[in-house]
Each structure stands twice: as C-alpha cells, then as structure tokens.
C-alpha cells in the first residue's frame, strides 16, 4: 500500500486526505500535506529536531491536536518541519520526532497562511492493510 495525500476542495477552505499502510503513516502524511500547503517543502532541510508528545481523548481529537502542534511550531515557534517520524500512536497518545529548521524568509518560500485545524467532517479509519485520515483546515 502506497502512502501519500490528496488536497480536497471545500467551498470556503481546504481539506487533506492522507493515507498509508497504517494510521501512523497516514498521520505523518497529513503533517506533510499541511506543511506543503503552508510552504514549499523542498526549501526546508532537516537540520534540527523536536520531540512531540500529545494526549487526547480519541483518534480524531489526536489528529486535530497533532496538526495544530505542527502549525504552532511554524506560526508560534518559528520552526518549519519537513520530516515526521511518529514513534508511538494509540487513540489517546502520540509521540513523534520531527525534523526541520528555523524559519528563514530568505530561504523558505511561503504559500498560504493556515489559520487552524477543524473537526469538520473529520475521519480517522484503519483496517489491517490501510490507514486513512481526513481533516479540513481553515485558511
């Protein structure tokens, strides 16, 4: 099963459908998709790393918090990531290491500001062969 993502149309904004051989990959792909919407990921190098740990009440909650964390790293902490490695994932917990570098407007080409991650039509599903997530962003 290949991994990847597609960008979904929404009358107001934009959505992400990300998939992989399991949920771990799908969550990682969703983060790649989010940052690809924000900026040109090919301009980002994996120079530094950050550890992320998130607690949540279920997978949907976890997905919103995970992507909100990545968004905050960029918009609040000035850190843009290009590589995402989820080390541990269950419905209530996510542990990951992300790699990237400090944002530099001379080097990094921004594309779009993402305001936030929403629960609108959110979807997290998994079977033995495949993980799939869907989430909409407020632009």
């Amino acid at each position: 099963m290949k991994r990847g993502y597609v960008i979904l149309d929404h009358p107001a904004d934009m959505g992400i459908e990300a998939y992989g051989k399991n949920l771990k990959e799908a969550f990682e792909e969703a983060a790649i998709a989010l940052n690809s919407i924000i900026l040109d990921l090919t301009t980002v190098e994996p120079i530094q790393h950050r550890k992320i740990e998130i607690k949540a009440s279920d997978y949907e909650h976890l997905l919103v918090k995970w992507l909100s964390e990545i968004l905050y790293l960029y918009d609040g902490d000035n850190f843009v990531c290009c590589e995402f490695d989820i080390e541990d994932l269950n419905p209530n917990f996510l542990k990951a290491e992300v790699k990237g570098e400090i944002f530099n407007n001379q080097k990094h080409q921004t594309k779009l500001d993402v305001k936030a991650v929403t629960y609108h039509q959110i979807l997290v599903c998994e079977n033995s062969e495949r993980g799939l997530v869907r989430v909409f962003l407020d632009i």
Binding site: E60, V64, S68, D75, A116, V117, Y119, H120, I122, D138
Partner: peptide, 26 residues
C-alpha cells in the same frame, strides 16, 4: 486563531462535564 483552537479543545472536554451532545464536533 490560537484562542479559538485552544477553547475548542477546552469545550470538547466541557461538553462531557455538562452533558451536552452536539451533532457536529466543530
């Protein structure tokens, strides 16, 4: 944007506390 994100999270928990059910999590 972050104030809304933060309080959406707080309200998710709050709904359990106050026994409120909504048809759409947003």
């Amino acid at each position: 944007h972050q104030v809304c994100t933060d309080y959406l999270d707080i309200m998710q928990e709050g709904m359990k506390k106050y026994g409120i059910k909504v048809v759409d999590r947003q």
